[in-house]
């Protein structure tokens, strides 16, 4: 059974196996197909029309399914690997072990934002950025560079306290848990972390940075924590909503999975500590 662990608790061997599995998927082209899928949805999900992956209730189940698919690809390379999660309320500076050369490498250099250490530095192992929106083909970051701070535990708790999953108009203007977690309204959790990392993580092609998966694994865990706090709060909307994925409607691109199928993660993975 897959057990997702806090990245700060991984052993040196677990880090090495995770990094090697990422590099293997990169080499055989599967990694870039995940980047392409994400960017396609980023560009087509809109507040006033069809929306599936972002700015909509299915933001959480869509990313849960996306991460499961990615985790299964990693496990096809090395069956011992699980996606770790990054609790950015705790490991909140560029000095965190997450950014050490034996794991994801550090921030980008000032001149051009290029990451220059770790396995994903362009000079190292061939982590070439192929799916991209501009001419640069090296991984970029600017950790904390925009002057923003990562969300605090208190800010996360304020969002977990929201009892309603989502609300009309089911987009970036909504009240409720989903949109506050996604970050288009309120204290801003998920979006702000993308901005804090900077570089590719701030773009539509954000999965080019492997930290994408650790960030979303933590967002996914917050959904589980919210469910535990609000056991009687259902996914919304239930049915009949234009442009939006209702509870039992299938999600693109898979076509065979609904939000209802994604409500219980324990079919697929558990956590190192109780959520």
């Amino acid at each position: 059974m897959t057990v997702r662990k806090n990245q700060a608790q991984l052993t040196a061997d677990e880090k090495r196996r995770f990094v090697n599995a990422l590099l293997a998927l990169k080499r055989d082209g599967r990694y870039d197909s995940f980047v392409s899928t994400h960017n396609d949805f980023i560009m087509s999900d809109r507040d006033d029309s069809d929306r599936v992956g972002h700015r909509s209730p299915s933001f959480l189940p869509w990313h849960r399914r996306f991460l499961i698919q990615f985790e299964q690809a990693l496990q096809s390379v090395d069956a011992s690997v699980a996606l770790p999660y990054w609790d950015w309320t705790a490991d909140r500076t560029p000095a965190a072990s997450l950014w050490a050369p034996d794991f994801l490498g550090g921030t980008g250099r000032p001149r051009d934002g290029q990451v220059t250490d770790g396995a994903f530095a362009f000079s190292g192992s061939g982590w070439r950025i192929n799916v991209r929106v501009d001419g640069r083909d090296f991984l970029r970051r600017s950790l904390g560079g925009g002057g923003v701070q990562l969300p605090t535990k208190a800010e996360v708790d304020s969002v977990l306290a929201m009892p309603v999953y989502d609300a009309p108009p089911w987009n970036s203007a909504s009240d409720g848990f989903r949109n506050h977690l996604e970050g288009w309204r309120g204290v801003n959790l998920h979006n702000r972390v993308h901005v804090w990392v900077g570089g590719h993580m701030a773009t539509g092609a954000s999965p080019n940075d492997p930290v994408f998966w650790l960030h979303h694994a933590y967002v996914d865990r917050l959904w589980t924590q919210w469910q535990a706090r609000h056991p009687n709060s259902p996914y919304l909307p239930a049915a009949g909503t234009r442009d939006v994925v209702d509870l039992r409607e299938t999600m693109r691109p898979w076509g065979n999975v609904t939000p209802a199928d994604m409500l219980d993660h324990t079919r697929y993975y558990t956590y190192d500590v109780a959520a």
Partner: peptide, 18 residues
């Protein structure tokens, strides 16, 4: 590639979350 949010603000594929 740009997009307008429901509240009238704007994002692009370069700055998608800000």
């Amino acid at each position: 590639h740009i997009m307008r949010n429901a509240d009238g603000t704007w994002i692009s594929v370069i700055n998608h979350y800000d």
